[in-house]
Every structure is written in structure tokens, then in C-alpha cells.
């Protein structure tokens, strides 16, 4: 029995020794503690900068998902409307990460930004990865445009595209029955070749939208149309190149844009920022955007939804 007891005492001693080793080990590997500061999220108040975001293609209805910040133009206009009504908002930073979108939706946002400017609210555009075509159209309405060096912008122009599947349909013997009220009703139909008069009609629409685009940029940027036209041939350019052609005002980050907005609105450097993404949960959901969206060939490549409309849009 004594032997067993001694074995148990050894086990207990081993436990004590393990505990001591563990304490020493943890003590030696303890991390430098950050300087203690109590951080409490208190509601911000006072004059400040509001943030609005343009994410993804611009349109009245976009592919929304619970994990996406992509929204229709009406949602963005509502956001701008809220900022306009808020007496604390003296400046707005419009974060643009969009390849453009439909003509009408883009123009509505453009007009809304002008409305804010007329109410003496400073609007600064901050370009993210892409702010091309319609994305640039929106930015041009702002008081000041800041882009990253590698931002893809420009692509000033209008496009309308539809697939021509006539050859494919003929091969499989598929014929379309079309009953229409006028000869232009199915101008961009995919089952036949486009006629010259149809092409001319669509070209007219494109030209009208293009002229509007140029005029609006000239108005927003306070430039001559003749200065814009040489680079308004649909070319894509980086932020650095856009700076050379005076399409933007500065190179910088989102934070630089916020600082610039404060300066232009004569706000103190510590003035609050009222962002859309309020909670960490919203930020998390935004960060997982794309994981569940299924950006597959069928969805993006063969979808017919993107055709049959005029767009200020950068197409890859």
C-alpha cells in the first residue's frame, strides 16, 4: 500500500511540476501589452462628413444579395437624400467602385449630386478599384475627385450591345416568330442580322447619350468640351493618367478624400464621419460579398439581362 501511495504522491508532484512549468512558460511568452485605452463606441454628433457608396454596376435594379453592398440607384439617391436632410452633414464623400451602368440611373445620381452641391454641401469623389464610364460620370458631378494611382477610370463613352445568334439558331433549325407593331420594335433582336436603318437609329441614341455625357462632364469639371473629347473615346486609364488629362483633381486614398472633404467644408480635422456601414456585422457581411454570389459563366456570360440597353459602362 505504501508503494501505491508513493506512486500517487509522485503523480501529484508531477501535476504540481507541470503547473509550475506551465506558469513559467506562459509568463515567459507573455505578449507586450498594448497601452490600455478604454474604447467605447459613443454616438457621433456634430457637423461632419457623410459617406455614400456606389458599389458594382449602376442601375435601377441590380443583383442584390444579403452579403452585398451593391444597390440600385434609388437606394443611393435615398442615402444622398438622407445626408442632404441631415443638418450635421457639411460634406459628403462618395466612394465609387463601379464600372458604370445604365444611362438613366447614372444621370439620376448625377443630378442628385448637383442638388447637394447647390445646397452648399461639398461632395468629394473617392475612386476605388474602378470608377469608369458611368462611375466617372457620377464622379464628375462632385466638387473634387480623388483616385488611387491604380484606379481604372475613364472609359468615357456609351455602349449598347446584343449578341447575334442567327448562325447558331439556323444551325439548330430554330426560328423566331415575331409579331411587332413597327419595324424598329425588335431592333436589337439576337435572332437576325441588324439592318442598316436600325444600326443608324441605335447610333443616334448612342450619340445623343454621348453628347450628354460630354456636356455633363464639362459642366461638373468646369472644363471645355474640346478638352475632354480627345480622351473621351472609350479609353480606360489609370488614376495617374486621368490626373494628367485633368479628369481628376488628386491622387490619394479614401482617407485623403475624407480629409479633403473636411478642408473644403471648413470642418475641423476631428469632425465625425457618418458612414453607412455602422456595425461590425455589416462590415463582415460586406467583406464576404462574392463568396455566395455564384459569379459563374451562366450568370455573367450568357445572361441576356445586360443586353438591350444603353450603358455608360466599362465592358471587359
Amino acid at each position: 500500500m505504501d508503494r501505491n501511495r508513493k506512486i500517487l504522491i509522485s503523480i501529484l508532484a508531477m501535476l504540481v511540476l507541470t503547473a509550475v512549468i506551465a506558469i513559467v512558460h506562459v509568463s515567459l511568452t507573455i505578449q507586450e501589452e498594448k497601452s490600455f485605452s478604454l474604447s467605447v463606441n459613443v454616438p457621433q454628433f456634430g457637423p461632419g462628413v457623410g459617406i455614400a457608396r456606389v458599389e458594382g454596376p449602376i442601375g435601377f435594379s441590380v443583383d442584390k444579395s444579403p452579403f452585398s453592398m451593391a444597390r440600385g440607384s434609388e437606394d443611393l439617391i435615398n442615402r444622398l437624400d438622407d445626408l442632404e436632410k441631415d443638418s450635421n452633414i457639411k460634406a459628403v464623400v462618395l466612394r465609387i467602385n463601379s464600372p458604370g451602368g445604365t444611362v438613366a440611373a447614372t444621370q439620376e445620381i448625377y443630378q442628385k449630386i448637383w442638388k447637394l452641391r447647390k445646397k452648399n454641401i461639398v461632395v468629394v469623389a473617392s475612386m476605388g478599384e474602378v470608377a469608369a464610364s458611368g462611375g466617372y460620370y457620377i464622379a464628375s458631378a462632385c466638387n473634387h475627385i480623388i483616385a488611387n494611382q491604380g484606379t481604372l477610370t475613364g472609359s468615357i463613352g456609351v455602349i449598347a450591345a446584343s449578341p447575334n445568334l442567327k448562325g447558331l439558331l439556323d444551325r439548330f433549325g430554330i426560328k423566331m416568330n415575331v409579331i411587332k407593331s413597327g419595324k424598329f420594335k425588335d431592333s436589337m433582336a439576337f435572332h437576325r442580322e441588324m439592318r442598316d436603318d436600325e444600326r443608324e437609329l441605335i447610333q443616334q441614341l448612342i450619340d445623343i447619350s454621348y453628347e450628354k455625357f460630354i456636356k455633363d462632364i464639362a459642366l461638373g469639371r468646369n472644363m471645355n468640351e474640346s478638352d475632354i473629347r480627345p480622351v473621351a473615346d472609350g479609353r480606360v486609364m489609370t488614376g495617374e493618367t486621368a490626373m494628367k488629362y485633368k479628369l481628376i483633381d488628386g491622387i490619394g486614398t479614401f482617407e485623403d478624400a475624407v480629409d479633403r472633404a473636411r478642408q473644403l467644408a471648413e470642418l475641423p480635422a476631428s469632425s465625425p464621419v457618418y458612414d453607412e456601414m455602422k456595425t461590425p456585422l455589416e462590415q463582415l457581411l460586406f467583406s464576404v460579398n462574392g463568396m455566395f454570389r455564384g459569379n459563374g459563366l451562366i450568370q455573367n456570360g450568357l445572361s441576356m439581362d445586360d443586353y438591350y440597353r444603353l450603358e455608360y459602362r466599362l465592358l471587359p
Binding site: 501535476l15 503547473a19 506558469i23 506562459v26 511568452t29 507573455i30
Partner: peptide
Amino acid sequence: TISGILALSLLGKQTSFF
């Protein structure tokens, strides 16, 4: 309990809260 606390503490980096 002390074994449990120490075993858990070994799993991650500790601060002086240890």
C-alpha cells in the same frame, strides 16, 4: 480548476491578464 485554466492558457498567447 487550476489545471483547466493553465491548459487553456497554453493554447493561445497571453497578456498580463494571465
